[in-house]
């Protein structure tokens, strides 16, 4: 078996009496979509924060392609190749779609501390930004101020920004939250496209999407991974059914 792209070993996190992560271990292999499901408050978002370096773990370790990320903050983990999207679309509202993606692209190229030349003056960067917008279905929206986008478009803009980072790993926190059936379908095919770029840890509540996309599913309940396996294994796991899936499936 090859080395996993992302590996978490025995992560713990407590907030006072609340256990958000309890000995969480998981692996993400190249080319795969690993879905993380669980009821509200199970600690899914906290786990993503721990992986992305926004929240320090009490104990445990995260490895990216075998390298420990111990002690690295969010900035350095992003530089190392962890790209994440947020539960609430995280974009820069005052900037245009094009500028948002450019910001991400130039950050990846380590060209942010350039003070004089116009950001919109580099043709190859502009072309790259347009390409990313095209891929997420925002072609022709380059000049629109991000604040004026619809909810669904914001989700896609954020994915374009994440894509422009050319990361080693995607951590996506509910990319379909708040979208109607049509929007969900579009994001679903977009995620199929993204998996060609890098493996993905996907937190999502939309079970149809999860079972259609995921190669592997881990179920988190009260901060503990109670089951991990292929979609079929998860469907037939009695503990999971009891804790989470209920009668829906």
């Amino acid at each position: 078996m090859t080395e996993p792209v992302l590996e978490a070993r025995a992560l713990n996190k407590r907030f006072g009496a609340v256990v958000a992560s309890d000995q969480v271990s998981l692996v993400l292999h190249s080319g795969e979509i690993h879905a993380l499901i669980g009821p509200n408050g199970a600690g899914k978002s906290t786990l993503l924060k721990q992986l992305a370096g926004e929240t320090a773990s009490d104990s445990g370790e995260v490895f990216l392609s075998g390298q420990s990320l111990q002690g690295l903050d969010a900035v350095h983990r992003a530089k190392a190749g962890i790209a994440r999207s947020f539960q609430i679309s995280s974009i820069i509202p005052a900037l245009t779609c094009e500028q948002n993606v450019l910001l991400s692209f130039e950050a990846r190229e380590r060209r942010i501390f350039r003070f004089f030349r116009p950001a919109l003056g580099n043709l190859s960067s502009l072309e790259a930004a347009s390409d990313y917008l095209l891929r997420v279905g925002l072609a022709g929206r380059e000049g629109v101020i991000a604040a004026e986008l619809s909810h669904g478009e914001r989700r896609r803009l954020e994915l374009a920004m994440v894509l422009a980072l050319k990361p080693a790993v995607f951590l996506l926190d509910e990319p379909m939250a708040g979208l109607g059936p049509e929007g969900t379908g579009e994001i679903r095919s977009l995620l199929q496209d993204l998996r060609k770029e890098a493996p993905m840890l996907l937190v999502e509540h939309d079970m149809d999407a999860v079972f259609a996309l995921a190669d592997r599913i881990s179920v988190l309940v009260y901060g503990k991974v109670i089951a991990s396996g292929t979609p079929n294994e998860i469907k037939s796991n009695s503990a999971v059914q009891e804790a989470y899936l209920g009668d829906d499936i």
């Binding site: 926004e54 992003a78 790209a83 995280s90 974009i91 820069i92 910001l103 950050a107 920004m161």
Partner: peptide
Amino acid sequence: RENPVRLAGLGVS
């Protein structure tokens, strides 16, 4: 000004 968390997530301090 608008979203420092996003900026950090892009690898810029």
